[in-house]
């Protein structure tokens, strides 16, 4: 196990994640540029092997479970969605190639012999960068919220149900085509479902138009900004409970309804 031949034989096992502790330590101890490159290349191949397995149809409930768990694990605090907000910064250009070719091109181009030594420092930098990006996003979101609310032409709808809480307000900024929704005393949607906001134009008698989906936090509240496509007009807003991902048209009776009026 001590000669060079033996430890180089571990590159594939390293890429597949099957080395035991001693083998891993041996391989990493001798790791040089050539073997690191080979391990990276083989790891890219290992990542593609799953593609060889013919697809199966998973149980339909699995989709709801995946989406429900994702929605439930949103960061704490009010939900603030900005569907067309500025794109994430600092993302590298995507590689528009077949999966296998992309993986192989990557390992040839992006290999950096000193990458492993810098991994710790890079992780710290990444962490700080993510915190900064989050702070910038929050600041931008708050600026947008204030801008929406201060528009002199803002219209407001108070949405309420037949009983007391929950309650909701919709602030409609037609100039920016943004619907700002605040909700209180509203339990988070059940797993596999979501709340969906609808705009209804009673004058035209047209079908309701989806303004977007949202959910509330564990604190039973939400602040959601929804971008509304051009051409959509409405004078009544309503909220229904829909399957995760939303529905083309309401499938349940609205439990919150309100008329839009000038502020």
């Amino acid at each position: 196990m001590n000669d060079q031949h033996d430890w180089r034989e571990l590159a594939a096992g390293y890429a597949l994640g099957i080395l035991d502790a001693d083998e891993r330590a041996l391989f990493e101890k001798h790791l040089d540029a050539a073997s690191a490159r080979e391990a990276d290349e083989l790891a890219a191949i290992a990542g593609l092997l799953g593609e060889a397995v013919p697809a199966l149809t998973p149980p339909s409930a699995l989709r709801d479970r995946v989406l429900g768990e994702a929605r439930a694990s949103r960061p704490s605090g009010d939900v603030v969605e900005m569907p067309v907000s500025a794109p994430a910064r600092g993302r590298a250009a995507w590689i528009p190639a077949l999966a296998a070719a992309a993986a192989l091109v990557f390992v040839l181009i992006f290999y950096d012999g000193q990458r492993r030594e810098m991994a710790g420092m890079q992780a710290q930098i990444d962490g700080l960068g993510q915190e900064l990006e989050l702070a910038e996003q929050l600041a931008e979101q708050r600026r947008l919220l204030v801008e929406i609310l201060l528009d002199p032409d803002i219209q407001v709808a108070v949405l309420a149900g037949p009983d007391a809480p929950p309650s909701m307000r919709l602030y409609w900024n037609g100039r920016q085509r943004v619907a700002l929704v605040t909700a209180f005393n509203l339990d988070p949607a059940a797993t596999g479902s979501t709340y969906q906001l609808w705009g209804i134009d009673t004058a035209s008698g047209a079908d309701p138009v989806s303004l977007g989906t949202f959910d509330t936090t564990a604190q039973r509240s939400a602040i959601v900004a929804l971008n509304v496509p051009a051409g959509v007009t409405f004078n009544v807003a309503a909220v229904t409970l829909e399957p995760a991902g939303g529905s083309p048209q309401p499938t349940t009776t609205p439990f919150l309804v309100g008329n839009l009026s000038s502020n």
Partner: peptide, 16 residues
Amino acid sequence: DRYEASQGAFVAWFNT
């Protein structure tokens, strides 16, 4: 947030 598109195809990352 830890996913970097420059580090390879999504399918390879996801399969892993």
